[in-house]
Design a protein around this nucleic acid. Sequence first.
RNA 1: GGGCGGAUUGCAGAGUGGCCAAAUGCAUCAGACUGUAAAUCUGACGUCUCCGACUUCGGUGGUUCGAAUCCACCUCCUCCCA
Length: 396
Amino acid sequence: MSNVMDTLRERGFVKQTVYEEDLYKLLGSESVTFYIGFDPTADSLHIGHFLQLIAMKHMQDAGHRPIILIGGGTAMIGDPTGKTDMRKMMTRETIDYHVECFKKQMSKFISFEGDNGAIIVNNADWLTGLNYLQFIRDIGVHFSVNEMLRAKCFETRLERGLSFLEFNYMLMQGYDFLKLFKDYGCALELGGDDQWSNILAGANLIRVKEKKPAYAMTFTLLTTSEGKKMGKTEKGAVWLDETKTSPYEFYQYWRNTADADVEKCLKLLTFLPVPQIDALVAHRDERINAAKEVLAYELTKIVHGEDKAILAQNQARAAFGGGGELPEKDVHCENATIIQVLVAAGICASNGEARRLIQQGGVSLNDKKVTDINEPVNSGDTVHKGKKIHVKINLV
RNA sequence: GGGCGGAUUGCAGAGUGGCCAAAUGCAUCAGACUGUAAAUCUGACGUCUCCGACUUCGGUGGUUCGAAUCCACCUCCUCCCA
């Protein structure tokens, strides 16, 4: 079998590993069971999760068996990594609901059939029933507080306050890995690079307790060339759930990727062959727009399916080049004026904002700049906000 | 448990009786320039029936003609001592 590590390296996934040589040999010689953890903190997956799933897919395609661990138990603690504040505690019901949502979305990318079909586990199943005394004697004894305090992931929290509850997170995650190692022979944990300390904790725990090799590998975090986390917009995260982020918005997000990030995104988030990607990003002038279209299309296709990807692409081309169908929006309001429509359609957050936009010349109706804040809108009219937002209004 | 310092508009962070809808930076939005990019410049950035009015500065009361600013109590948090 071809070695998936080569693929992951070539596409720029790999950030840190332990025992890299051994791991490489292992991945090249047999089917390895590995796991990636997901925190069910929201009712939809977002782009950060997506990167993990793509990596998981590469692994699965290479013959390895994925375990998707949903952190239903650890979510009750809250991962303090990189957070400045303590996370709100969620109820068991909320978490269970999120778990269901995740399962649905994941089944689009990952195969659950066949010899190396993925399995989903929820760490609530074994964490909730833990006996405290037994746990700290069996597991806690192997953790050095000195080492933990030195871990980068607690750095910001040590300045602002870290509760003992959250301090335990690392032990929980380490225990997860041990548990999966024993139950499923899982020997490798993958995750984002911010999880390095937590992942390492588990791999070390297995090596100490079971005296057997366990591996850890982290992936590059998806950040923009400016170092910011990708997948954030003014509205919040870019979600995979189409009711939270429409396929058109999703498409547009990627269509507007910065030049410097296109290559990275194509390699990390699509399955296009690397030589093809290299060809796409060969030019650093306006020709890179072709690469952005491919990126947006490919991603939308993976997440929302081919039909919706084509539709989104047509809508985008219509909005920026003319022709084709624009996205439509049903709006309910009487005696519709431009201000009311802007707010009702969710384009502006308040009347004041709509008024301001018009006064600043940022709104057009059917390609004509709006100067009167009371300009009437008819069904079928197209409202434009700035250069990027174009919506056909259906009054209902 | 004791002591100190805090809680301000998305975030960070000024403001310590009227000149405060509240400095500044970041983020965001629009305009110009462009390639649906970046950088840069300009403007906006609580709500409304918008040249005026109304509601905000952890919560509840109080002092005052007037409070984000003073007082009391409460809630939460950092730090120091245990």
